[in-house]
Design a protein around this nucleic acid. Structure first.
Lengths: 121, 121
DNA sequence: CTAAAACCTGACGTCGGTGTCAGATGCAAG
DNA sequence: CTTGCATCTGACACCGACGTCAGGTTTTAG
């Protein structure tokens, strides 16, 4: 599978895939002429990478985490790192929940201004 | 209250506060000599701004959302915008939950490798 | 065989929220 | 009045995940 097709299937740009390779997140074999060639599993991997990015993990962390998610286990040395990331993710989740509730409050109150106005934080 | 104290209390840098003013997120009166002076409510407002940033909202959106969160209601014209943001936030939450569960899976499996290896997505 | 489409490697641009530095002032304490 | 910290206004630096352009090569369709 060539880079264009992977990009299209995974919903990312060709540039992004090259960047992932540069960051050692995604490997590709090469044709005699130098063109990248990917296995079918690449699409799923790219989507996984996107998910981790969406969670706010930077490349260097993704690089560590990826093989663990693949294999389902981690070298003990990375456990602390993983747990630290878990904590961060959890924190972001609670932040987002708070913001969501605030937005909900404003929306509901605007739709139905009769209700009591809670301005608590 | 002067800028240094606000920064310290809110846990952000002085630079950030100036930036917020530049972005019309936070107003300050000025002393005769030009120094910023903030009301006590500024600290809470800054924390709110931080929360919105943490949720991934960019400055221009925060600028629209802030007065609504203050007043508890929004001009109807902004309702669509607010709901769009709500959807985005919700999406990010589910992304984060997925990632969290993946991390949990790896962590649990590493701690107790005996268990069955679920590699579901 | 040839033209077009896809791909290649650099390299520089972008955007947003800050850090940081320079050089000039304001303000409070002795 | 002076000293010294806080603050002021620019302005440039940074980082990360790409976008984008240039100029050249490979692959594929006809």
């Amino acid at each position: 599978m060539r880079i264009g097709e992977v990009a299209q299937r995974a919903g990312v740009s060709v540039r992004a895939l090259r960047y992932y390779e540069e960051q050692d997140l995604l490997q590709a074999s090469r044709s005699p002429g130098g063109h990248r060639h990917y296995p079918d599993t690449a699409v799923g991997r790219v989507q996984l990478i996107q998910q981790l990015y969406a969670a706010g993990l930077p490349s260097r962390v993704v690089r560590q985490v990826l093989p663990c998610v693949d294999s389902g286990e981690a070298p003990p040395k990375l456990l602390d790192q993983l747990e630290a990331e878990r904590v961060r993710v959890e924190q972001r989740i609670t932040d987002l929940l708070t913001v969501r509730d605030r937005l909900d409050g404003v929306i509901a109150n605007t739709r139905n201004p009769s209700a009591e106005c809670f301005h608590g934080q």
